[in-house]
């Protein structure tokens, strides 16, 4: 990179600049902004209301109690909320490609991924992360865990790694839209589907599905495995003891894979023009 600055640093700087512009754009319509923040909070809260309704009828779901499920929910939604805030806009890449405005991003001297991720940066998405962390906070108090240093540290590490894993999904899904501009909904199956899946205990799901989200799309490391460690429950699929601490490694692998997919997608766009 020119001027001896690394691409990630350049990317972050550009992201900050562009996101800042969008925030100011949004704030020109203050009332609408306030309304949509509330709407977002409500909408993402519905998931948890459904869980509460279920627990109004039963004491345990798949053998997990309400605080335990709330812990899963909190970890999943908080991580997802962060990823969606940072990378959610990549999901609308297809529209930019379709209407041709993607080209204008390619003539700027900053990384395209940063521009796409910061595009239409929506502060209202804070709602989901906030709602998730409120549930997480309650769950951490309510669960019956013997907290030690390791377990306390594991919570923020898990949230960050989960955010990276979900962020990778957003980026890879966005790259897929270079090939199929109308297929943004496929991405929803993995991102929104993923965070929904992780809100319930692994014991609920079929073994093949659990295998899939552990080894193929390693979502399990965003909360199932670390939560099982915190709660002293058996790991899904009888994973080895250290699996709860593998999340950072999994997150790095996911990010690298997403980066590769992104570059391949961008390359194909630039050779086909879509």
């Amino acid at each position: 990179m020119a001027w001896g600055r690394s691409r990630p640093v350049e990317g972050l700087r550009a992201y900050r600049l562009i996101a800042g512009m969008w925030i100011r754009s949004t704030l020109t319509y203050r009332a609408s902004f306030a309304l949509t923040v509330c709407g977002n909070l409500l909408l993402s809260g519905l998931d948890f209301v459904a869980i509460l309704l279920m627990f109004a009828q039963v004491d345990a779901l798949g053998g997990w109690t309400l605080p335990e499920v709330a812990l899963l929910y909190g970890l999943s939604v908080t991580a997802f909320g962060i990823a969606q805030l940072a990378f959610g806009s990549v999901a609308s890449l297809g529209g930019r490609v379709r209407d041709g405005s993607f080209d204008t991003l390619l003539v700027r001297p900053v990384p395209v991924l940063a521009q796409v991720a910061a595009d239409r940066f929506a502060l209202r998405r804070l709602g989901r992360g906030v709602q998730g962390s409120v549930v997480l906070g309650w769950a951490l108090v309510a669960v019956d865990v013997d907290w030690g240093v390791v377990k306390v540290l594991l919570v923020p590490v898990t949230v960050v790694c989960g955010a990276v894993i979900f962020g990778s999904l957003f980026v890879a899904g966005g790259a897929f839209q270079f090939l199929a501009q109308d297929a943004s909904e496929v991405q929803n199956a993995f991102t929104y589907g993923g965070t929904t899946l992780l809100q319930y205990p692994p014991t609920v799901f079929g073994r093949d599905l659990v295998r899939g989200v552990t080894f193929v799309l390693p979502l399990a490391f965003a909360n199932w495995v670390p939560a099982a460690y915190l709660l002293g429950r058996p790991y899904p699929l009888g994973l080895p003891e250290g699996a709860a601490f593998a999340a950072p490694l999994v997150a790095v692998v996911c990010a690298a894979a997403a980066g590769a997919v992104w570059r391949a997608g961008l390359r194909s766009y630039r050779s086909t023009g879509s």
């Binding site: 279920m54 009828q57 039963v58 004491d59 345990a60 779901l61 319930y200 014991t203 609920v204 799901f205």
Partner: peptide, 10 residues
Amino acid sequence: YTYLALWEAR
């Protein structure tokens, strides 16, 4: 799967 678990418990 979540409904199956729910209806199994109840």
